[in-house]
């Protein structure tokens, strides 16, 4: 555990809590892509199956459980409790365009051809692209509430901090996880355009982020 890794995990947790509380307190999921949230729930489910096979640390187990519970609770809020506010019209990204290639890649490129390893690889690849329905929705409607942009900022920051963690681990332990690093770089690149808009419009402006 190093400072980048810890900061990354905290950033990830903050992002998920921000989104959950936003929906819970406003009793509305307007502007939130339910599809992205289902994909994230799928990411955690397929990655954390090792909860049943290995014990790493109390920190590891607790964080995994928190991520799982919060991701399913968020999906529940969007599709059940506050489904009246769900904007299915604008959440029109075709997720099969992500799921099919990601599944195929996970079978082709993995550390071992075993169910758990393939599912782990699937989760890493899927996480890299899971935010696309949300970004697509913002592009389509042309705006995002500032609280939604804070969520996206912390979610993007988390993987960027993991990149720093991997650089650190490579130099201190010689640790290099090719699948995670390549996917992590791709994932972070998807947020770069958003980071720019976040700094120039949300932080300097305040209020909604609207696209030209």
């Amino acid at each position: 555990m190093n400072i980048f890794r810890l900061a990354g995990d905290v950033s990830h947790l903050v992002a998920i809590i921000i989104l959950f509380l936003k929906i819970w307190k406003s009793k509305s999921c307007a502007g939130i892509s339910g599809k992205s949230q289902v994909l994230f729930a799928l990411v955690f489910t397929s990655r954390y199956l090792d909860l049943f096979t290995v014990f790493i640390s109390a920190y590891n187990t607790i964080m995994k459980l928190v991520f799982l519970v919060l991701s399913y609770a968020t999906v529940y809020l969007i599709y059940m409790r506050f489904r009246g506010s769900y904007d299915s019209e604008n959440d029109s990204f075709r997720v099969e365009f992500l799921l099919v290639p990601v599944t195929g890649l996970a079978f082709l490129e993995n550390y071992a051809f075993t169910p758990l390893e393939i599912l782990w690889t699937f989760s890493i690849f899927l996480e890299a692209v899971a935010i696309m329905p949300q970004l697509f929705m913002i592009t389509k409607t042309g705006e995002a509430e500032s609280i939604t942009t804070h969520y996206l900022f912390f979610l993007g920051l988390y993987r960027a901090l993991y990149l720093a963690n991997w650089v650190w681990r490579y130099h201190t332990e010689g640790f290099f996880d090719q699948i995670a690093v390549v996917s992590g770089v791709v994932q972070t690149i998807f947020y770069c355009d958003f980071f720019y808009l976040y700094v120039t419009r949300v932080l300097r402006g305040s209020g909604k982020m609207s696209l030209p």
């Binding site: 990830h12 290995v54 790493i56 995994k64 991520f67 290099f176």
Partner: peptide, 10 residues
């Protein structure tokens, strides 16, 4: 090995 080691990350 790398297969086991990456599992300590979230």
């Amino acid at each position: 090995t790398s297969q086991i080691k990456h599992k300590d990350e979230l």
